[in-house]
Design a protein around this nucleic acid. Structure first.
Lengths: 246, 246
DNA sequence: GCTGGGCATTAACCTGCGTGAAGCTCGAAT
DNA sequence: ATTCGAGCTTCACGCAGGTTAATGCCCAGC
């Protein structure tokens, strides 16, 4: 990968952090000095596995990553989706053994950053530390929202909510426009994220399509009726905490 | 509340933090200087509500607290239970508007600590900052585990898992012995935590009792067969990250 | 000692979603 | 051009858990 694209990695990270926290020029400069080891990873590949003790974090540059846990009987629950700019395993900075797995969905380009370098930058730049702490807290806020869905919302509502959430999150990093975005997941992945079966995911998607709420071509989602979809899913973006100054 | 009990508040916090992170004497001394405003709060009372912008955190000293979100149709999902020593709204230090509600279950004694004081102590004592960041990360790890349960485990497994989890967490702060502990919740609360109906919670508890796995007197839980209960719930304590040096 | 109000318990019935299985589609590999 | 396989779609059927409602229990307050 070229020098230009490596720097693009820093900009992805900066865009993401600036979408949730206020950073000064000195902070940005410090982030740009972080050594990032860029790699291409094929689809459906585990990056870090439950039980691992990683010494680096991975920054997603292109593609889509998920975190998941699996039951002894092999039932998988996807815990989160991650979009470019995210560091899906940032928690490993302070939780040294992985309690879940991080994996690519489509093929991805990832940037690996040593824990030691990240720790140094959080030690020397309190704003960066605060931004990253805040990032992990938003991560947890999304978990809470998903818990409400898994425990108390219907299949249809969960799907609507998820599609609204991904739209808003991708928008914040410039990867969504007019309700149209890439979401390279299978219906099985959606099922595992929503706590449903793939068959029922299919039923729900049929319903949302015939109701004119959305369209799906390959892996691109088009939300045709934002108002209707967000009302159905009771989507309120507060929990994403996307306002950096609040 | 007396001076002695106020200091007891600091010790609760210290016990909790030491159960998850390594602190030095200077850190402990700094924690003991935190001004804590102790109050008694009756049962079933909201402490902080969705939409609030709190200026202080609450430290639980005695009792049991839960965090929850509620659907527009009024369906409640309990997101977490909190035991003495926990700061259930620690995330408000960096997420300024509450996206959920914190409430007492039985009557509790709480210690309120100003954000400004907590921020000062995290700025001046990196170990304390790391311990608190880690605490919020463990909070998130518990969310992940609950998500797996809500999405992919049976009602029986979820209940077994929850009762094992509470045993281990209360043990870490000296409030559980020989599988016996206080859990002052109604079956409705359990239902809201597990994503079930109160009727089904009752069915499940009957089953676990007749199988000799546990006993319930009033609000005290007695785990009679730890091996059986933890196997049923597939309980593995890794996600609690209770080893301070790992 | 009575009474009212949570909470637990039980029963009868119902439904949202899972399961298993079969066909279909379409792009990638040969 | 043909084949293959992953993913999508549809169907028939079953069940875990929801809903509603009635009953009982226990304790706090009068």
């Amino acid at each position: 990968m070229h020098e230009r694209t490596v720097q693009f990695g820093h900009e992805r990270l900066i865009t993401k952090l600036q979408s949730i926290a206020e950073l000064r020029d000195a902070d940005l400069a410090a982030l740009r000095t972080l050594p990032i080891n860029v790699k291409s990873v094929p689809a459906n590949t585990e990056i870090v596995t439950e039980g691992d003790r990683p010494t680096e974090c991975c920054l997603l540059l292109e593609g889509l990553v998920c975190r998941s846990r699996t039951t002894l009987e092999g039932r998988r629950q996807i815990l989160s989706f991650h979009t470019p700019g995210d560091i899906p395993d940032l928690q490993s900075l302070h939780l040294h053994v992985m309690d879940h797995t991080v994996a690519t969905l489509p093929s991805c380009t990832l940037g690996f950053i040593l824990h030691s370098k990240l720790r140094a930058v959080t030690r020397d730049y309190p704003n960066i530390a605060a931004a990253m702490w805040r990032d992990t807290l938003i991560d947890a806020a999304i978990f809470r929202e998903w818990m409400l869905g898994l425990g108390r919302r219907s299949a249809e509502q969960r799907m609507a909510h998820l599609l609204c959430e991904m739209a808003r999150r991708l928008e914040a990093v410039g990867l969504q426009q007019d309700g149209i975005y890439e979401l390279a997941v299978t219906q099985i992945d959606l099922a595992d994220a929503l706590g449903l079966s793939n068959v029922h995911v299919n039923r729900v998607l049929q319903k949302l399509r015939t109701e004119g709420l959305l369209r799906l071509d390959r892996s691109t989602v088009s939300i045709l009726d934002w108002e209707g979809l967000s009302r159905l899913g009771e989507f309120e973006a507060l929990y994403l905490h996307q306002n950096p100054s609040v």
